[in-house]
Amino acid sequence: MALRIGIVLGSTRPGRRGEQIASWVLDTARAHGGADYELVDLAHHRLGNLDEGGNPNLRQYQHPHTRDWSRVIDGLDGYVFLVPEYNHSFPGALKNALDYVYREWNDKAAGIVSYGGWAAGVRAAEALRLVLAELQVATVRAQPAIPAIPAFATGAFVPGEGLDASVHGMLDQVIAWAEALRGVREGRAGAAA
């Protein structure tokens, strides 16, 4: 079965630029191949502030939006997070979405594409790596970073020179790790049976 990789748009801010980047990354990933790719836009999931009373490790969800989110995340083998930098970190909406579930993230691979200002979102990506490690998500080394000022100089997203090669390199790593970690998840499921 083909790997399923979610392109997670990590901002819900009105007027966000991430939609343009997400569309480009999704097209680039589909051209790259090696997996089935789908966009996971946090703005479409309406999670609101974390409203589950129980520990997400137990997967005893009370609300339909949490159960839906659980199915989306559980059904993916890996992720590419598109993360803008807000005040030296990643958006609260993304942290909230990560916190809603736990086991669904475990033993999966992730790449990060960051964007923002001249620093290109790298501080947000590094902060995100710490949270993903706690969720048992293995992040790959390759990290495309997009400085928003030249990328949006015309108002529309224009990928900089070499960005496509950087995304392809990251995808190669995500695919390899996602395939290996699928074996880990299958082994864990077999041991539990």
Rank of each mutant, 00 (worst) to 15 (best):
R4C: 03
I5S: 00
G6W: 04
V8Q: 00
L9D: 00
G10E: 02
S11K: 03
S11F: 04
R16L: 03
R17H: 14
G18D: 06
E19G: 15
Q20E: 15
A22T: 12
A35S: 06
L39P: 01
D41H: 02
L42A: 03
H44N: 14
P56Q: 05
Q60N: 10
T66C: 00
R67P: 00
R71C: 03
V72D: 01
I73M: 11
L76V: 04
G78N: 07
Y79C: 00
F81S: 00
Y86F: 15
N87D: 12
F90Q: 05
G92L: 12
A93I: 12
L94A: 06
N96D: 14
V101F: 01
R103E: 12
R103F: 09
D107Y: 14
K108H: 09
A110N: 10
G111M: 03
V113T: 09
G117D: 11
G121N: 02
A125I: 03
A127P: 01
A127K: 12
R129K: 15
L130E: 14
V137A: 08
V140M: 07
Q143M: 15
P144M: 06
A145E: 02
P147R: 08
F152W: 08
A156R: 14
F157R: 08
V158L: 13
A165E: 13
A165K: 13
M170A: 09
M170Y: 12
L171K: 08
L171V: 10
D172M: 11
D172F: 06
E179M: 06
A180G: 12
G187K: 13
G190V: 08
G190E: 14
A192P: 00
